[in-house]
């Protein structure tokens, strides 16, 4: 969807992050869908490895 289309017919929103923004949009009947986002698994694995390298003390 180009910017032109957004300004002509939008907004139709995919919300990633704070749920309140999605709730506010739905309350005004703005087309919106919420992504139940979680941090990527790969990143968590990497952090786990880093933690081991630091002797378990990540703080």
């Amino acid at each position: 969807m180009s910017m032109k289309k957004l300004l002509k017919d939008g907004p139709k929103v995919i919300n990633m992050g704070m749920e309140q923004f999605y709730i506010d949009l739905k309350a005004r009947e703005v087309p919106a869908v919420r992504v139940d986002w979680k941090p990527p698994l790969a990143d968590r694995e990497l952090l786990g490895k880093l933690k081991k390298l630091r002797g378990g003390n990540f703080v």
């Binding site: 969807m1 139709k12 995919i14 919300n15 990633m16 919106a32 139940d36």
Partner: peptide, 24 residues
């Protein structure tokens, strides 16, 4: 239904034209 990914969200709202991102 709450999709876990952007792709899933696009299958629910294929005409979506903007992503509002407030992630870390």
């Amino acid at each position: 239904y709450t999709p876990r990914t952007l792709e899933g969200a696009l299958s629910v709202l294929p005409e979506a034209d903007i992503a509002l991102i407030s992630l870390p």
